[in-house]
Simulated scan of single mutants.
Amino acid sequence: MNETVPPGATAAQWLAGARPRTLPAAVSPVLVGSAVAYFAGGFSWPRALLALVVSLALQVGVNYANDYSDGIRGTDADRVGPMRLVGSGVASPGTVKAAAFGCFGVAAVAGLVLVVWSGQWWLLAVGAASIVAAWFYTGGRRPYGYLGLGELFVFVFFGLVAVCGTTLVQLGRVTLPALLGAIGIGTITCAVLVANNLRDIAGDTVAGKRTLATRIGAARTRWLYVALLLVSVLMVIVLAATSSRWALLGLLFVPVIAPAVRAVLGKAAGADLIGVLKATGVAELVLAAGLAVGLVLGSG
Rank of each mutant, 00 (worst) to 15 (best):
S244Q: 03
V194M: 04
I185L: 14
Q170K: 08
V115Q: 03
Y225W: 13
V109Y: 05
D204S: 12
A125I: 12
R141P: 13
T205G: 15
L248S: 08
L114H: 01
D200G: 01
R199Q: 09
V163L: 06
G159I: 02
G150A: 10
L168M: 12
L123I: 04
S244C: 06
V226M: 02
F153C: 07
G208V: 11
G172Y: 01
T205Q: 14
M235C: 13
S118Y: 02
V169C: 03
V231T: 06
S130A: 15
L198G: 01
V163M: 09
R210A: 14
L114T: 00
V113F: 06
R173I: 00
S244M: 06
G203Q: 09
T167I: 00
G150I: 03
D200F: 01
F153P: 02
A129C: 09
G111N: 08
T167V: 01
R141K: 14
L249S: 02
A195K: 03
N196M: 08
L230T: 11
T138N: 10
T221C: 09
A128I: 15
Y146M: 08
Q170T: 11
A241C: 08
C190D: 13
T166L: 03
G208C: 10
A110S: 11
G140M: 09
V226R: 12
A133G: 07
L239H: 00
V154W: 02
A108C: 10
L228F: 12
A213G: 05
I185Q: 04
W246S: 05
L160I: 13
L239C: 01
A107R: 05
L228P: 06
L229E: 12
P177R: 01
I216W: 11
G127R: 12
